[in-house]
Write a protein that binds this DNA or RNA. Structure first.
Lengths: 273, 273
DNA sequence: CTATTCTGTTCATGATACGTGAACATTTAT
DNA sequence: ATAAATGTTCACGTATCATGAACAGAATAG
């Protein structure tokens, strides 16, 4: 699974703070590891032991890193930071109830995705019967081109912005089913636009299918997408093709309206008339 | 509400990377704001416009910051980072089902907290009837001394570690009910230890009460705490005092056992015998 | 529509503090 | 007990960070 990796400083132009980049390279290296030592990190990142130690010490002082018997690991400070950012988003505040209804009526996992940079980010996920935390956790970034929700978003973006994203991100192959040809994708985006429904048949994970519908603003431009995903065999049943699109559509409009209502309510509060 | 704030560089010793500290001061300033301009940030942090711009540009390159018509805001990159850290934690993987049961049987919000540095961090929260996201989101850091869960943890830490935390964090006052006298707190920790149950009567938020029970390891040392919280009036009912402690206790042991089972299962996988 | 005053961005320069490498201190393994 | 790891500290040369001013572009006022 590709994910944004902090590049080595030499690849960057002179307008970046190289020390900061180094810090985030270390954070990035700690990300998917339990606890790691200074030497190991230094070797992996081709940095001096002293350098790595200084950065880890700094992160520890700021409480973004935990030190356990000589080893270091990331703290939950980043979760607090990220959750705080998410809580500030108007759409997140209205999305819980509709997602629960969606998950309830379909019996599958319901998610909402928003676009950021060239990626799709899962803003929230509601699982059915307390499924264990999966690989696709909230906050996870995935290529827009390889998911139903991502394609639903792409289909409702202005052409120039869609092209810019495709130029920058490309069409990375994740499974045998991933669409990697740009022409093929553009044609599918056309039908997705017509149907207001996108499908993903194992394009992100081989045995996981997904159906999605875009959430648009007043200009009919995508701001997010809701989706339902489940095991391939269950998702191949007829009911999925027939019922899910309309359920997703009404969920999307419900969320759209809730966002609008909240906005008008807020402006009412600040500027009553 | 106090939260860890990145200090100004001059307060720090020479073993920290000052550039990194500056970056996190900027991140910290962006944390609770919608979108902010370079000038505004520079004024607030007493930095040059050029400096702030360079840092924001760096964060943007690494996709931790979003640029919208000249203004900057944090991306969900930190949520991905934080959620990834959380998902790696063994205890998080087993906690969902027990928390749901707990919330179901009490009709209140159920949480699990773990200690980090001198703070308590909410690792997960399960709300009842899809309550809107509150001020106390997952990942939020709160003083251990001002919550039932925090006190439950403190009561089951080794004396020296408990004292170290109290020395570093102090006993910050958050409401009229917050315990700010160390002796008083230590006495209450004693009774909490005896009962394996901690109470919070508006010590963190004035009209919010809370009951908690510690989760301990094989040495009877706290690794976390589960809690149930609700509006003061509802939580004053007799049933709360009578029924909640035992429910919390069984939830705690359930989680403890699940962690142990998972661990033995894992070691089985890697080293079967 | 023009002028003005805000923005955000770029750039040259000097001082700073970052990264290097080696020495030291501690723990783990032999 | 010895050796070979580890994490930590430190002095130094230099890369680079912060500064402050100049630049360009947008927003506002006149």
């Amino acid at each position: 699974m590709p994910r944004p990796t902090v590049p080595e400083p030499d690849e960057m132009d002179g307008r970046v703070a190289r020390t900061t980049v180094t810090t985030f390279r270390i954070i990035d290296a700690l990300r998917d590891r339990d606890a790691v030592g200074v030497t190991e990190l230094a070797d992996e990142l081709s940095l001096g032991k002293g350098t790595v130690h200084k950065h880890l010490h700094t992160l520890h002082e700021m409480e973004y890193v935990i030190r356990e018997d000589g080893k270091y690991r990331l703290s939950l400070g980043f979760l607090g930071l990220g959750a705080s950012v998410r809580t500030r988003m108007p759409i997140y505040r209205v999305v819980q109830r509709p997602l629960e209804n969606l998950s309830e009526s379909t019996g599958e996992v319901a998610s909402i995705m928003i676009p950021e940079h060239t990626w799709g980010v899962y803003l929230a996920r509601v699982t059915t019967s307390s499924e264990p935390p999966t690989e696709l956790y909230e906050g996870k970034r995935v290529p827009l081109t390889a998911t139903a929700a991502g394609k639903a978003i792409l289909a409702y973006l202005p052409d120039d912005e869609r092209d810019r994203i495709l130029d920058e991100s490309g069409l990375p192959r994740l499974t045998d089913n991933t669409i990697t040809d740009r022409e093929t994708l553009l044609e599918e985006l056309q039908t997705i636009h017509d149907d207001r429904t996108a499908h993903d048949r194992g394009e992100l994970e081989a045995d996981r299918h997904c159906v999605a519908s875009p959430i648009t603003d007043e200009n009919n431009t995508a701001i997010a997408a809701v989706s339902v995903s489940g095991p391939a065999d269950r998702m191949r049943e007829k009911s999925v093709r027939q019922d899910f699109p309309s359920i997703l559509g009404s969920t999307a409009t419900s969320i759209k309206n809730r966002v609008a209502n909240q906005r008008s309510k807020r402006s009412e509060d600040t500027a009553p008339e």
